[in-house]
Amino acid sequence: MSLIPLLLLADSRLPGGTHAHSGGLEAAVAAGRVHDGETLRAFLLGRLTGVGFTAAAFAAAAALELSGGLVVGERGVQTREAAALDAEYDARTPSPAQRATSRALGRHLLCAVRAGWPGVLLDAVAGLHPDGPHHPIAFGAAAAVAGVDPGGAAEAVALGSVTGPAHAAPRLLGLDPDAVTAVLASLAAQVEQVAAAAAKAARGPVEELPAVGAPLLEIAAQQVRGGQVRFFVS
């Protein structure tokens, strides 16, 4: 597999709407739970092994499911498997705010990727839900059309679960960007482990895909903080 398509999809400058999301970091900063490099690292690790693991497994599963292309039947393109993955991911995201974020980012990602890799597959996946497919499903579909294998999709999504909030940290905390890079580098081995476990889980039955959530992220995502202005969507 060429690494170039994977690097393109994983590029944080891909215009998929992620720059306005902090992955719950803004709320964690507001609640005083994250305030320096050390607490940022602990936050990112929790995100990686929780929602990062779950999302990576779903991205890999979607990539696996869709890499053979779609069957075009009498009633149009068959998206039953992708729809099942989307429903399973929806059930793993109890917070309405997080569901909305995930679907919006899925929709935005597909908009960007469809420009580069147009075709019926992404059109069909975009139509899975009126608000857009969940982000990991969209990423897996993007991986499938760009020629990224399921393991690569898992790696990109696992990494994305920490780089998103990490890049918000200098903006929210005035943290030294080099310190953020050091934190990310220190997590590299764990990202790899989580991605490998996610890719392995993706080969199993859909109902057994990981479902790890994080209560405090869910709680913080629902908070409307009186008097406090929020800059990030999530």
């Binding site: 709407g17 919006a104 935005h108 969507v233």
Partner: peptide
């Protein structure tokens, strides 16, 4: 650079 949210 990334107009997705505004466009939507």
């Amino acid at each position: 650079d990334d107009i997705r949210a505004n466009a939507a």
